[in-house]
Amino acid sequence: MSGEPLLKLEDVTRSVRLPDDSELHILNGIDLTVSEGDHIAIVGRSGTGKSTLLNILGLLDRPTSGSLLWRGKDAARLSAKQAAHARGRDLGFVFQQFNLLPGRTALENVMAPLMYASGRDFWNRRKLATEALERVGLGGRLDSMPQTLSGGEQQRVAIARALVRRPRVVLADEPTGALDVSTGRAVMELLDSATVDSGAALITITHDSNVAALAREQFRLDSGRLHPLSEVVVP
C-alpha cells in the first residue's frame, strides 16, 4: 500500500461549454502522479487552468475525460458523499485569499474542519486546533478575529486549518498571492516544513517561480498541458 500513488492523473481533460455553445478546452491530456511526501509546484500564467487542475486534484471537480485515481480507486466511481469524506479526511486546502470564515476567531476557524470529523477528533477539536495553531506560531492569537490578523498571520491560520486533520495531500492555490515577498517566502517555508513533518504531499499552484523553486518537482501548465519545468521553453 505504501508504494501506491495517492493521486494519479491519466490523460485528463477538462472542457466547459460556453454560452455561445462552443467548447472551451481548459486542460488537455494531463498526466501526473503524486505520492506520499512529494512536493510539487505547478506554475503557469493566469487563465492557463491551474485552479481547474487543483480542483480536480482536490476532488472538487471531475475531469471531462481521462482518469483520476485516488489511492488506486477511480475517482469517477466515488459518490459525492465518498468524495466529501475523502476531502475531509485526506485533503487539505490553502487558498490565495485565505478563505477564513468571517466572524470566527482563529481557533474557531481551525476547529471548523474538525466539525466534519467523527469520534475523538470531533470531541477533541479545541485541543487539536490549539496545537495546530501553536505549530504555526500563533499560539498567542487563538481568540483573534481574522480582520485583526496580518495577511501572513491569516495565511498561517489557513495552513493550520489545512493541516489540523492530518491530511495526506495539501493543495495550495497561490498561497503567497496576497502576501508581500518576504512574508510569502516565510509562509511557503512554513508550509513546506509542516508537510515534511507530517509526511503529507504538497501541491502548490503558483505563478511565482521563486515559490515554485522551493518544490522538489516543478511543472509548468501551458495551453492546458503540463510540462516538467526543464522541458519548458520560455517564449
Binding site: 472538487l60 475523502a86 468571517p102 471548523a112 466534519y116
Partner: peptide, 16 residues
Amino acid sequence: IREVGIRRSFGATTGR
C-alpha cells in the same frame, strides 16, 4: 455562498 464552498472543501457533504 463562499462560506458554504469553504465548508464543502473541509468535507461537508450535501446532506450535512
